[in-house]
Every structure is written in structure tokens, then in C-alpha cells.
């Protein structure tokens, strides 16, 4: 196993997620690190936000993370060899007000990472734009669409459910443009 100081953020996420799972704690990565992964590092997050699938005693989580060298910093955890913060959130795993239905898995040399899908990742970023007017998150949603296959029809359906139809309409063209960029890049790669 690679030492923690040599792991990328995604490898560290996989390492932590797999270790917690081996200790009976099923967690899913959510938040900004999913943007980092899906947008191929076009955005870099400094923390790993894990959400347990069911309620779990924080003492159990803490004991599991201490086993692999993490230290407590208030309610967060940090490994002395990494600048990345780990936060174990409170369930439920949700995007806006809807439960997350699809969990993706990515395999790294350090373990298997379970994370929200690219579409849910984009929706999660859009939620921050809708509810907190956070334009950084709108840009992150755009980056995810530009680098990964996102179901924009689903994002639109969800936005309507959240009561954000008008806000989605304002950003739809920008997201479609990002999708076109991705498709053009993909087509160019295929003709090479």
C-alpha cells in the first residue's frame, strides 16, 4: 500500500472509504471531492465529505479512523501526512431534498470508492447555487458536465421538484454548452 503522503485525494478517499467499510461503516463520498474526481482535477477540493448510509455511532467512526493514523480536529479528521480534511456527515444521503438512489464505484489501487453519480454531483452543486446563491458551485456543476456524462434532463426534473425551475432555466444554456464541449472533445478523440 502507498503511504498516505503519496496518495492523490481520490486515492485517499478510496483508502478511507474502503477501511470504514471493512469496519462495518458503509459510507458514500459526496460534496466537492466528487467534483474533483468527475471534473478530472479541474477543481480541487480540500476535504472528503462522507455520508454514512445509515446512522452510525461517531465513536465507532472515530475508532476506525484512528486505526489508520487519522487524528481528531473537533468533529473533523486529518492525517498528519495529508492536507485533506475528512468529515463524516450525518445521514441521510440526499441531493437537495431527494434521497440519493444511485451509488457509483471507482476502483483505485488503494481501495474501492463509493460515491454519488456525476448527475447527483451536478445536482448537489446546483443545490448550493439555488439555495445559497453560490456561483462557485454553479461553475463546479458546469465543470462536471464538461468532463463527465451528466443527465441534464434528470437535473432539470430535479430542479423543478425543488421549486427551482426558473433558476435552472437561467443556467440551462451554460450547462448545455458545457455538454457540447464534452461531446466535441470526445468526438475529436475518436477521430484521432
Amino acid at each position: 500500500m502507498k503511504p498516505v503522503r503519496e496518495m492523490t485525494e481520490a486515492e485517499l478517499a478510496a483508502f478511507v472509504g474502503q477501511h470504514l467499510r471493512e469496519r462495518g461503516i458503509r459510507v458514500v463520498l459526496s460534496g466537492g471531492m466528487c467534483v474533483t474526481i468527475y471534473a478530472r482535477n479541474a477543481y480541487v477540493s480540500g476535504d472528503l465529505d462522507f455520508v454514512p448510509e445509515v446512522f452510525v455511532d461517531r465513536r465507532k467512526v472515530s475508532a476506525a479512523l484512528l486505526e489508520i493514523g487519522f487524528e481528531h480536529h473537533g468533529r473533523l479528521f486529518k492525517h498528519p501526512e495529508s492536507p485533506v480534511w475528512v468529515d463524516i456527515r450525518t445521514p441521510p444521503l440526499a441531493v437537495g431534498r431527494e434521497p440519493v438512489k444511485q451509488i457509483c464505484e471507482l476502483v483505485f489501487p488503494t481501495g474501492t470508492l463509493r460515491l454519488i453519480s456525476p448527475t447527483d454531483c451536478a445536482k448537489d452543486r446546483l443545490a448550493n447555487y439555488y439555495y445559497f446563491n453560490d456561483r462557485q458551485c454553479l461553475e463546479q456543476a458546469r465543470l462536471v458536465v464538461e468532463h463527465t456524462d451528466v443527465d441534464l434532463a434528470e437535473a432539470e426534473r430535479w430542479s423543478v421538484q425543488e421549486g427551482q425551475e426558473a433558476r435552472f432555466a437561467q443556467v440551462k444554456e451554460s450547462l448545455l454548452e458545457a455538454e457540447r464541449h464534452r461531446e466535441q472533445r470526445s468526438a475529436a478523440r475518436q477521430t484521432e
Binding site: P92, A94, G96, R97, E98, P99, A127, N128, Y131
Partner: peptide, 8 residues
């Protein structure tokens, strides 16, 4: 938190 799933 407007994102809290049980807010309503």
C-alpha cells in the same frame, strides 16, 4: 438549511 431533506 434549505437542503435538509425533511425541512417541509
Amino acid at each position: 438549511n434549505p437542503k435538509y431533506p425533511f425541512l417541509a
